[in-house]
Nucleic acid binder design. Structure first.
Lengths: 172, 172
DNA sequence: CGGAGATACTTAACATGTTAAATGAATGCG
DNA sequence: CGCATTCATTTAACATGTTAAGTATCTCCG
């Protein structure tokens, strides 16, 4: 493996810090990023084998349990920004994994639904995906997993309505 | 705000689910993604005002406390992939925020360090950044924040050495 | 010492994140 | 009714994520 003898995170630096910031590796965004990456690393290879990216898979999953959804709604559910979703839907449609038809009442809206092929693809991916999730749960502990997700939800709630012009004063 | 009366996550679907998967919005990757986004949403505007992206800021922070670092080491510290780092370093160097010189002993390695200008820029961003972090801590609770980060670290540990060919058998 | 293999970094190619602007369609109000 | 405003979606432009391939350098072994 040719591991270096020590210094697992740049600890050998000769103490030249002038700005008294929180230790970098322990910042909340970093912790969240690393944890998420550790999790996604487990899923990516399997998805890749089926020709799907993480985001494409999110969209299929979001569509799996419903008849159809508007693009905006889907963006919220799959947690994707509009432009990303727009591109991905174009590609998924070209691959016949989803279907689209504009709403009758409002020509602006388009209803998106998963296709038969899409369902089939999901069925072929889901078992592996579930197995991986089960293994993660086993390793980390089911109890702790629930606890972690509760805390993540609370964090999200704590910050809801901050920073996005949601606050108070200056509108533009 | 024009909130729809109900249906906070596509619950109005007429029960067409055939694949018995975990509720989408409660998957671990989604929870982590949403939590991280909620946090980053707080920081991005401030960084943007200073002409920095999140990743550029991570690199400057990683360099702030040390004399210099090799690119690979920096990639590990700032949690960026080599190609991303390569591009970003090129841009940061063009903006004179970092400096680079190839190591004497090994011409392959290049030592990266933050420049005087880089330090100045950090000093102008850090106060706001710290204030935001403090507000997040206040809202979520300092105690819980530590607990959350501990759990995230444990999760990372639980999954270390899975999935990346680290396992056992099939090499290629 | 010389070339096969390993190493550090960069480039390439494609997909997504992020913000701003454009497009097309509905709504409201005078 | 007509048009400014709002809304849903897409396009554009730039930055990063992700994997594969390329380039230069170094190491080691015969």
């Amino acid at each position: 493996m040719t591991k270096k003898p020590a210094d697992p995170a740049g600890e050998n630096a000769p103490a030249a810090r002038q700005v008294p910031m929180r230790d970098f590796s322990r910042s909340l965004p970093m912790s969240l990023l690393r944890a998420r990456e550790a999790v996604m690393r487990q899923f990516r290879p399997s998805l890749r084998e089926h020709g799907l990216t993480e985001q494409q898979w999110r969209i299929l999953r979001a569509l799996a349990g419903i008849e159809a959804a508007e693009v905006t709604e889907l963006a919220r559910t799959a947690f994707l920004l509009g432009p990303s979703l727009s591109r991905i839907l174009r590609d998924l449609e070209a691959r016949n994994l989803i279907e689209r038809k504009t709403a009758k009442a409002d020509q602006r809206r388009s209803m998106v639904s998963i296709s038969k092929e899409g369902v089939k693809l999901m069925a072929s991916v889901a078992p592996t995906s579930e197995a991986i999730y089960a293994e993660i749960t086993r390793r980390f502990g089911a109890r702790k997993l629930v606890e972690l997700q509760d805390m993540l939800g609370e964090l999200e709630q704590s910050l809801a309505g901050l920073g996005s012009g949601e606050g108070a004063s200056a509108e533009e």
